[in-house]
Amino acid sequence: MTDSSSSNFSSIPILDWSLLSTTEGHAKFVEQLRHALINVGFLYLSHPPVAREDVEALVEYTPRLFDLPHEEKERILMANSPHFFGYSRLGAELTKGKTDQREQFDFGTPYENQWKPGDPEYLKLWGPLQWPPEELLPGFKATYLRYLDQVEQLSYDFIRLIAEAFEVPEEAFAPFLGGDAKPKPGVLQHRSKIVKYPARKEGDSDQGVGPHFDGGFLTFLLQVSDHPGLQVQNLAGEWIDAPPVPGTFVINLGKALETVTQGLARATSHRVLSPPPGSTPRYSIPFFQSIAQEICIGDLVLDFKPEILKLKDSRGQTGVVDSVNYQEYGQYPSGYVNLIGRVKSHPDVAERHYPDMFKQFFPQGLPAQGSAY
């Protein structure tokens, strides 16, 4: 457990969702949450309200997804999708100049695309998903959609708890969530990935994915396999392990939440190290909570009681961290900020579906790999 009197952290706190079932437990949970939000930016959530059988089924499907025949994966390449959904080959992305050794499928919650000619291009970002054929993975799509629906509901419940921890009305977050603190399904599209980090070869880089921040409000990570590898950077710049804890999600805060809370909530730099040579692959499933695309969060920064805002002073100044992405928040609509990141990370998708932005960011033509920063 992290020492709540410390302005730095050397481990990730564990919060128990079942505490919320009593008045006394609820108050304790909110107090622990406030500390994690301000001083750590990461936490484990035990006993999350997501059906265990759906989690277990999704865990069982995960290696089978990557074992699909090569030609079936290529049929749902991300380059086919203007919404950046689908399959990405191993080593397709760079972070801070190094190749990320991961293979992944991007999915999301169901959404009907609303873009029409004349609308901002970023409205193309949300839309239909690409799925592997049902006959190759029977039940996978239904299981994953059931899982995503439950995590989406949890993400809204969690935002209301954050409002309570920071002593603001839950409606304060409604503009970022399409006008409702608990939107109906289909109002927003949240993204999710299923990721495989293969064991590295002798002498290779150990970068599964390099240091970065997440972009939206909250990320809910299911660490599928029991491999360590996730690391979180504290204020001193030290890398702290966040190993898998059975029966938990890892939750971390995105740059959008940090921005709208005047830095009260802390987005924390993190990375993933590849499994060592001879190991089995590491698998994980992150869920990224989105916010309304047209919102320019710099215009909607929340107000807090002085005594709440002062709580971040005890944290001290953030030291040098290795992550620099999402600096455009506060300048542009969030949809455009996310589109910039996607275009830079996946230039093959941009070349096909966003040619003007492709020329802007890649005047020399298609690079061998994408790099958000």
Rank of each mutant, 00 (worst) to 15 (best):
270 H>K: 01
272 V>L: 02
277 P>N: 04
278 G>R: 00
318 T>P: 05
270 H>F: 02
297 I>V: 15
320 V>D: 04
316 G>S: 06
294 E>K: 15
275 P>T: 03
320 V>A: 09
319 G>N: 05
298 G>P: 09
301 V>P: 03
283 Y>S: 01
303 D>G: 15
292 A>S: 14
282 R>P: 04
285 I>Q: 10
285 I>C: 14
295 I>Q: 10
290 S>Y: 07
270 H>L: 05
270 H>R: 01
280 T>Q: 03
320 V>Q: 08
281 P>R: 04
279 S>G: 00
306 P>S: 08
320 V>R: 09
292 A>V: 10
272 V>C: 05
280 T>V: 07
288 F>A: 02
307 E>Y: 14
266 R>N: 06
284 S>Y: 07
288 F>M: 01
268 T>I: 06
285 I>S: 14
306 P>T: 11
284 S>G: 07
298 G>T: 12
309 L>W: 00
272 V>W: 01
271 R>C: 05
299 D>C: 13
292 A>K: 08
285 I>K: 06
299 D>F: 13
293 Q>G: 13
298 G>C: 12
298 G>H: 08
282 R>K: 13
288 F>P: 01
315 R>Q: 08
286 P>E: 08
290 S>L: 08
314 S>W: 05
279 S>T: 02
276 P>Y: 05
302 L>S: 11
299 D>L: 15
291 I>G: 08
318 T>D: 07
312 K>P: 07
275 P>V: 02
308 I>M: 07
292 A>E: 11
307 E>M: 14
294 E>S: 15
284 S>N: 04
305 K>C: 08
299 D>R: 15
284 S>H: 07
296 C>T: 15
278 G>N: 03
317 Q>E: 11
295 I>K: 13
292 A>T: 14
285 I>F: 12
294 E>P: 12
288 F>H: 02
308 I>P: 06
304 F>Y: 07
316 G>V: 11
291 I>C: 11
280 T>P: 04
300 L>H: 14
296 C>L: 15
275 P>K: 01
